[in-house]
């Protein structure tokens, strides 16, 4: 029984159609990787799932709720979907702990003590127990991204959406973020990841999706997509990544 079922999803920006009918389902505890050339619609797909972008057509069912229904409580829905951004998007005027606890206090109405306890636990999970009082500007890119992951985890989401989480990082900082994602996977978190970290995809992904020009071209286990892709477009893209 999939936790996320996307059917016939379409999204246009003006006259440009970016998603041209996407069908995709993600099972509980599954780690699904989405790869594809820039402009293929990967990020837009992710952003439609929690409706940061408003889909133009099609359906998204998440944990028994139809995401695109007008009557759906969007803010309640978003609590159960974590999102991690390429540019971290930490709040620069707040400490790491305050970044993590803001939604706990404002959305879940937890007391400061309760929120802080959950926040510290989330920061410990990403290996930043000693940085609770640091401001984003005092942290490295890798540390900032781990705070952003802790911010998503603190709400105890049922899925975490990763939008190119390591693309803005210096190469030597990528490993710390991937290690956290590996831990999450081991803990049974359902994850949908847009990324070009091939080695990580090989090791950790249950399934790899290749997107191009608004379509899902091919999907399968990492070994199949990377070693013996069926489609010419997939082959060309994967060859380019491996070079």
């Amino acid at each position: 029984m999939p936790i996320l079922t996307i059917s016939g999803l379409r999204k246009s920006f003006g006259t440009t159609e970016v998603l041209k009918g996407i069908d995709l389902s993600v099972s509980n505890r599954e780690l699904v990787f989405i790869i594809g050339p820039s402009g293929s619609g990967k990020s837009t797909l992710l952003r439609c799932i929690n409706r940061l972008e408003e889909p133009t057509g099609g359906g998204i069912a998440f944990d028994g709720v139809e995401v695109t229904d007008r009557s759906t409580d969007l803010n309640a829905l978003r609590r159960s979907m974590g999102m991690v951004f390429q540019s971290f998007n930490l709040y620069p005027h707040m400490t790491a702990l305050a970044n993590v606890t803001l939604a706990l206090r404002k959305v879940l109405k937890k007391s400061r003590d309760e929120a802080d306890a959950i926040g510290r636990e989330a920061l410990a999970k990403v290996g930043l127990s000693d940085k609770t009082a640091s401001y984003p500007s005092e942290l490295s890119g890798g540390q900032q991204q781990r705070v952003a992951i802790a911010r998503a985890l603190a709400l105890d989401p049922k899925i975490v959406l990763f939008d190119e989480p390591t693309s803005a990082l210096d190469p030597e900082l990528v490993g710390s973020v991937l290690a956290v994602m590996r831990d999450l996977k081991a803990g049974g978190m359902t994850m949908l990841v847009v990324s070009h970290e091939l080695r990580f995809a090989r090791d950790a992904a249950d399934r790899v999706i290749f997107m191009d020009q608004g379509h899902i071209v091919e999907e399968g286990p990492p070994s199949a997509i990377f070693n013996e892709p069926r489609e010419a477009r997939t082959r060309a893209f994967v060859a380019g990544l491996l070079r």
């Binding site: 929690n50 978003r78 974590g82 709040y91 803001l102 959305v107 952003a148």
Partner: peptide
């Protein structure tokens, strides 16, 4: 991105 991060955690 500041708006998106906050809205994605359920803030109004």
């Amino acid at each position: 991105g500041q708006w998106e991060a906050a809205r994605s955690t359920g803030l109004t």
